[in-house]
Amino acid sequence: MNGIANRMPKFIRRADPAVLTAFACIVLLLFLGSLYSRSFLSPEYLLQQLKVASFLGVIATGMMLVILLGQIDLSVPWSVAVGAMMAAAAAAYGPIGVALAIPFGIFCGVLIGIVNGIGVAYLRIPSMIITLATNAVAQGLMVVYTGGFSPQDSATGAMRYLATGFTIPGVPNAVIIWALIGAAMVLVLTRTSFGRSVYGIGNRERAAYLSGIDTRRVVMIAFAISGGLSAFGGVLLAGYASKAAQSMGDAYLLPSIAAVVLGGTSILGGRGSYLGTVAGVILITLLQSILSVMQMPEAGRQIVYGLVIVAMLLLYGRAPASR
């Protein structure tokens, strides 16, 4: 076994088996898809998939940061919706509102993230619980906000341009944005002390604290970034659909967690690479696309989805055999 591994090229030996599995699954899905329909391998279709994937990619980037800490962010659904709805709402206030729509949407997401971060880092509330609670509060706020009067909900031109326009011919803007955010994330994770602290805290917060890292601040910033990226994903989605809707984020919680975990990031924190998350996001998007091309009803999609995630996790997401 070892002999075979040693004879493989170096980059394969160094790669995480989980990331390789994820990429292998992508190839397998593309192959199965091409059997079903010829147009599956056409550049137009693949580019379209990449564009759809970039919304999930932006959201999953924030989720990955939080999962690397060994925490989880379950406030994604309403962070996405708040980002979209607040950006659209700001646009109702004249030209200044239109100009500030996108920053304002992201700012609201960051606020949700900061509340999460304070709860997790300073009040030591389990992240799963506090993020569920802020999710509920964000939902309540949006229900109150939309219930009283009919708000402005259509996306601004800038939002539409970011999500559907083309700055470089042939490459959708959304893909460029995902690439930029991804590059920034890789840089932060591998080249900054903040990024190394995230891995350190994910491995053992106590040790990170004793080596002089302000772990609470790092955790709070990570949650704020996650909230902001979720909201930015919502802004892009609103631009894509050209309007903001209340339940638009519901479909992104499970996929974003699944993408990160399928990409080989340990749900216990401290281990994982951004390349894996990219693979996970593409994998999930392709899976969704194939299921919808096959005209699988919503019920079947949910079932396949859950089963695939459980199966993949059982393949390589298991905790070590205890003791």
């Binding site: 499970l254 089963l307 995630i309 459980v310 996790l313």
Partner: peptide, 11 residues
């Protein structure tokens, strides 16, 4: 299966 309860039960 030794999976984390959060992710496993969401799925």
């Amino acid at each position: 299966g030794r999976l984390q309860p959060i992710v496993a039960t969401i799925a």
